[in-house]
Design a protein around this nucleic acid. Structure first.
Length: 893
RNA sequence: GGGAGUUUAGCUCAGCUGGUUCAGAGCAUCUGCCUUACAAGCAGAGGGUCACUGGUUCGAACCCAGUAACUCCCA
């Protein structure tokens, strides 16, 4: 068989993903094993994969695969949410293209179109996740509007209503005039916008007395206000000035006319007004501004709403009826100008809210909405996090979480849409309403009020529930734990283990899951919340469609292989910090895959010769020990969710320890004309065992490559179900610290020898003799000779008692090494080198001595630190003596 | 305006309870090598006033205070 020169990911990826599916490796059903559960943060059903998903799902897959390989019953539940606003907007747009107006459709007709649309385009994202290698239990795929999921939502609503935590109320909401729905504060994106500040003159109403006595002498009086929204003056209820503002004392108790419509409104006093902003006169428009609304409540002002749901002006505006708010703004400026009421215009920038879903400018609007009380729910949800039952990783998010939970406001859960769960509230002819799971049950409730009511008297609330209201139940509802709280699945899988999500939805998703978990089950929904950062480009900009700075994830997979991209994502993703994504990380990932592939190729080229005797036992023991150490480190990294460090530890284990050192130590010397290189049996067996273990450790990060190699005949015959994906991770054995330290010395010798070769311009092929003056206990001659010989290309090793004349030398630890070259030693350069070292050692000793002669150091420092200082001193002195001996020798020449 | 976070090599980040002359990793850079697994490679090298200013301490990248810059959240 001819092995490709580089790793080719494509075939391997398709082949093994299919194989895993066919053999049900992703499937989880409750059994006697310990469960390990992750529920996916459901992406929008209409969404497509972006870099944020790539990161998020790579992390989840690494965690789930690792759990599987640790013998846990690993269950990763996939799914999507219905994203009511975004999806409805898309469906409306699609209908428009077909010439259909939503207004002309019944609710059921519209939902039929929406479902059709969802079936056609929905769930693409889940297919994309498969390309990444996501090992979700696809049989469990859920959608927040599945029948059982919707029923759970309705049940929860009824439950909360029974507790008295759901109510209706008029509130100022963030109105999206395009989506024609309220959106939550969190769904509003604030942006700086250049606007105009209009200075408008209001005529002050003269008093009767003044009118009669001074009619002619007293000219008309005006006050001027500054506003960015002149089109709302018709909704003004008052003008407000600061009572301390001396400029306007004469206006106290007066009234003014609104220009153009000449409606009379009072001048009111409130310290809320900033005197040095604009003119110090504030127009108060309670229906169209949150702060004005509150001011209006305080001063019992009239509320005049002049806007329709689509932000056109209604008949209450009296003028410009039917015009859009922005067009009205331009037109009214002209009208004011003509009426002489426009004093001036200034440029002004301010923050304006835009709908995250439709990008329309948010209009503050008073409307009747459904609310869920948050105080009672937030308390326990905060406690879970504060007492550490739910761990946030990294911990820095606890502060933010607490701040939000302590200042939580009631949650507006209604949306003026059709795509979603219709609120199960039924209005009665008398204006009251009842809440029940079904219309029939609602009738029973209604008849308790008045037995004469019939089904036809009940009208269901038109609004649907916020999507977060469904996804807030996700960890419970995917296991049917709302409807059947005691079923086997929920009891087995809940609470789930880890949740991987973005910090920006900590509140409206994570917090709400914790709330519902407590409320419905008295249990947290997950143990750990791993918060990933935002994927930015290498310039630190958020990746966005409009900037076009986001690579297409599938293109990346195409180019670098899924394994390469997974490694690339993880290499640059410290927990909780934003990551500056750069394609070069994917390149590094695919380079790593190639390195592993080539190590495999090397081993494949060997063949056991039973007659050969192994002299690699030290190398084998060393790597085994090194491997065990790496397992410990990697486990510790995972325990702390330091995934990129766990990956880097694995990367170095493979590249440095295994490839660069171990394989080079044991690699048979090439024999020409032989198809397969001969190797002794113990080394061959050990190496293959190491390689198989390495594949296991790598698997969570690079599932495809490892599975591909796992099935090679190199490892013998495999049963159908003997796959890397379900192999059990090796358990760590002993770490031999003496071997480790000694080999570090050997590595330094090799490096020095290479250095000398390289600095003298000698070929690596030229074998050199090495002499050593040993004072340590290291057995160079017997124990390490095979390694030194092979890696250093040393012809012979001799022990000497004194310096070797004319040799190049170096010191490692307390042992001195000599290489005799048939070249003149550059005495001056050598002297310089040793003088440099001497200086360093003198400085070092001085700093150590300074500590040791400091009484306060001796008195205060821990004894092991003092001892360590003494040892440092002794070592440095011994070394300094050697260096000086060398210098003496050199200077004598 | 209120709150939180960040600042260590050209880039992305480690650095635990203050204690090795402690400043580290990967990438990038430079030099030399097409050495029969890998040029997507090998061997070697350079690179930092740990943002700044003070303080605490025998000892500070680490603790404290202040300053600056950047980021995020809320109003």
């Amino acid at each position: 068989m001819d092995i490709a020169k580089t790793y080719l990911p494509k075939q391997a990826e398709d082949k093994w993903y299919k194989y895993w599916l066919e053999h049900n490796f992703f499937r989880s059903v409750p059994d006697e094993r310990e469960p390990y559960t992750i529920v996916i943060p459901p992406p929008n059903v209409t969404g497509v994969l972006h870099m944020g998903h790539m990161l998020n799902n790579t992390i989840q897959d690494v965690l789930i695969r690792r759990a599987r390989m640790k013998g846990k019953n690993a269950c990763w539940v996939p799914g999507t949410d219905h994203a009511s606003i975004a999806t409805e907007a898309k469906v409306v747009a699609m209908l428009k293209e077909r010439g259909i107006n939503k207004k002309d459709l019944s609710r059921d007709e519209f939902l039929a179109y929406a479902l059709e649309w969802k079936d056609k385009y929905g769930g693409i994202i889940l297919e994309q996740l498969k390309k990444l290698g996501a090992s979700c239990d696809w049989e469990r795929t859920k959608f927040t509007m599945d029948e059982d999921m919707s029923e759970s939502v309705i049940d929860y609503f009824v439950h909360l209503h029974k507790k008295g935590w759901i109510y209706r109320g008029v509130r100022m909401v963030n109105w999206d005039p395009q989506g024609k729905t309220a959106v939550s504060d969190e769904e509003v994106i604030r942006k700086e916008v250049n606007q105009k500040l209009y200075y408008i003159k209001y005529e002050v109403v003269s008093t009767n007395v003044q009118k009669e006595t001074n009619h002619v002498a007293n000219p008309t009086e005006y006050l001027t206000i500054a506003t960015t929204r002149p089109e709302t003056i018709m909704a003004d209820a008052a003008i407000c000035i600061n009572p301390n503002d001396e400029r306007y004392t004469h206006l106290h108790g007066r009234q003014v006319y609104i220009p153009l419509i000449n409606r009379m409104i009072p001048v009111i006093l409130d310290e809320y007004v900033t005197m040095d902003f604009g003119t110090g006169c504030l127009k108060v428009t309670p229906a169209h501004d949150l702060n004005d609304y509150e001011l209006g409540q305080k001063h019992k002002l009239q509320i005049i709403d002049i806007l329709n749901d689509d932000a056109t002006l209604n008949e209450k505006a009296q003028i410009l009826i039917g015009e859009d708010r922005f067009i009205a703004r331009k037109k009214i400026a002209v009208l004011l100008e003509e009426a002489g009421a426009l004093d001036k215009m200034e440029d002004y920038t301010s923050q304006i809210g835009f709908s995250e879903r439709t990008n329309a400018a948010i209009e503050p609007k008073l409307s009747m909405q459904w609310f869920c009380k948050m105080k009672e729910l937030a308390g326990p949800a905060l406690d879970y996090v504060l007492n550490g039952e739910v761990k946030l990783i990294p911990e820095k998010f606890i502060n933010t979480y607490r701040h939000w939970m302590e200042n939580v406001r009631d949650w507006n859960i209604s949306r003026q849409l059709w795509w979603g769960q219709q609120i199960p509230a039924y209005y009665l002819p008398n204006g009251e309403f009842v809440v029940a799971k079904t219309k029939e049950e609602a009738l029973v409730e209604a008849q308790a009020i008045d037995p004469k009511f019939t089904l036809s008297d009940l009208t269901q609330e038109e609004d649907v529930l916020d999507t977060w209201f469904s996804s807030g139940l996700w960890p419970i509802s995917v296991f049917d734990g709302v409807r059947n709280p005691d079923n086997a699945e929920i009891n087995y899988y809940y609470p789930t283990n880890d949740l991987v999500t973005a910090p920006e939805i900590l509140f409206f998703w994570v917090a709400r899951m914790i709330m519902s978990g407590y409320e419905l089950r008295g249990q947290k929904p997950f143990n750990n919340v791993y918060l990933t950062g935002i994927v930015r480009d290498k310039l630190g900009r958020k990746m966005s469609k409009s900037l076009g700075n986001s690579p297409d994830p599938l293109d990346l997979i195409d180019q670098y292989g899924a394994d390469g991209v997974r490694v690339g994502m993880l290499l640059c993703s410290p927990a909780g910090n934003d990551l500056m994504f750069d394609e070069k990380y994917c390149k590094q990932g695919s380079g790593f895959a190639n390195k592993i592939w080539n190590a495999f190729k090397l081993i494949k080229g060997w063949q056991v010769d039973p007659n050969l005797v192994s002299n690699n036992q030290v190398a084998i023991n060393w790597f085994e020990s090194r491997f065990n150490q790496a397992l410990i480190d990697i486990e510790s990294d995972f325990a702390q969710y330091r995934l990129s460090e766990a990956l880097m530890a694995t990367y170095k284990l493979v590249w440095d320890d295994f490839c660069a050192w171990y394989l080079e130590m044991i690699k048979p010397v090439y024999q020409q004309g032989v198809e397969k290189q001969s190797i002794d049996e113990p080394t061959y067996r050990a190496t293959i065992a190491f390689f198989e273990n390495i594949l296991k450790v790598l698997h969570p990060f690079m599932p495809f490559l490892t599975e591909e190699l796992w099935h090679d005949e190199l490892f013998g015959q495999r049963e159908d179900l003997d796959c890397c994906i379900v192999a059990q991770l090796p358990t760590n054995g002993k770490v031999n610290t003496q071997l480790k330290t000694e080999l570090e010395v050997i590595q330094q010798i090799i490096t020095q020898v290479r250095n000398i070769r390289s600095s003298k311009g000698l070929s690596p092929n030229m074998a050199l003799p090495l002499a050593v003056k040993v004072t340590s206990k290291i057995d160079y001659e017997k124990k390490y000779w095979p390694i030194i010989k092979q890696l250093g290309n040393i012809s012979q090793l001799t022990e000497v008692n004194g310096a070797v004349n004319g040799a190049n030398n170096f010191i490692i630890g307390t042992d001195e090494f000599f290489i005799t070259l048939n070249l003149n030693v550059d005495v001056a350069a050598e002297i310089e080198r040793f003088e440099k070292e001497e200086d360093y050692l003198i400085g070092f000793l001085r700093s150590v001595q300074a500590k040791l002669s400091n009484e306060r150091f001796i008195a205060n420092a821990k004894s092991e630190i003092v001892e360590n200082e003494l040892k440092k001193k002794a070592d440095a002195e011994a070394r300094l003596e050697m260096v000086r001996a060398n210098l003496r020798g050199l200077r004598d020449e």
